[in-house]
Design a protein around this nucleic acid. Sequence first.
DNA 1: GTCTATAGGTGGATAGAC
DNA 2: GTCTATCCACCTATAGAC
Lengths: 193, 193
Amino acid sequence: MDQKTEAVHTSQQILDIAQRLVQTRGFNAFSYADIANEMNVSKASLHYHFTSKAKLGVMLIERYTNDLGKILDEIDRNADGPIAKLRSYVDIYTRVLANERMCLCGMLAAEFVTLPRPMQTALDDYFEANELWLAGVLEEGRHAASLQFKGSVSDAAQFIIGSLEGAMLMAHSHGGMARFSAAARRLLADFGV
Amino acid sequence: MDQKTEAVHTSQQILDIAQRLVQTRGFNAFSYADIANEMNVSKASLHYHFTSKAKLGVMLIERYTNDLGKILDEIDRNADGPIAKLRSYVDIYTRVLANERMCLCGMLAAEFVTLPRPMQTALDDYFEANELWLAGVLEEGRHAASLQFKGSVSDAAQFIIGSLEGAMLMAHSHGGMARFSAAARRLLADFGV
DNA sequence: GTCTATAGGTGGATAGAC
DNA sequence: GTCTATCCACCTATAGAC
């Protein structure tokens, strides 16, 4: 492996570990030392790849948003209709929780006021992306009469996001996967799924 | 005011400030220094009232749980039937958010794995108290046919708690009170309210 | 009950050698 | 790219005077 490949690889590994730490402990409760210990490198090495914790945080959110985009694209390509899309969307959360993690951005939402501005902005983008995609699915479902719900699609989209994040938050600390699954089933049922 | 009264007053004031800081910033993102600055006393004085941050945290949760108990008792005395009780329960969250705060225990739930054991245990008790009370209301409402929902009362109670905490979490950082109110309306509607 | 002073640790970040 | 060494700010907590 040449230097550049190695560099990319290291950066990715740092992001992977940092992401897991944020998803389990939160942004304010992990440190460069945590990552350094796990990788058996010095803290200074990490600063070579990410000059500040704030920038590392922004990169985490942007990568997470990007990964979500790819998943949503794949759902759009493969899922057969709004009901399947909604189910697949819920499955995203299920898989995260199965890894004993919180949604990265749900965790960061709790810490929102303590985060540096650039991270707050990146968070806004993440949730907006979720909302826009969901609104599209709901609109499609309403038009095809395969989904039943009242009110605006954006209100409904925001409700779904909030309920899933909240169910995840509670399941992560109290009740585990069984609790989340029950909540997800009930939520889907509210939309006729 | 004698010494004892003064002591109680000071402890309460510390708890009040600490509670607000946890509700807005989280347990890991506030310090004795924050409280000391606000009260114009030294950090050491605070340690006289609460020897450790962990104990302060436990006291916060216990007081919060206690206050909730009083509110629920009052709802039980004054509210006319399950529908009114459910509405009043949602209003508790609304009032917290109107103060530009998160639910104390919702915030702590996000930080759960980083909290000292005694705080985790106290958190369990808080959510169990919510769930038990809600389950009672739901049972009553199902029996009187004033509330409509499927599945077990405890699943439904857990769903309500998760959805409200999640709606609050999202509203706190994105969308504000309007977003929470819309979510609360939709949630109540799902139970025929 | 409150203070000053301080201990002992950890945080993020930088300089400069290799 | 990684290291050691170091800085400075902040953290929780304690000792001891008042």
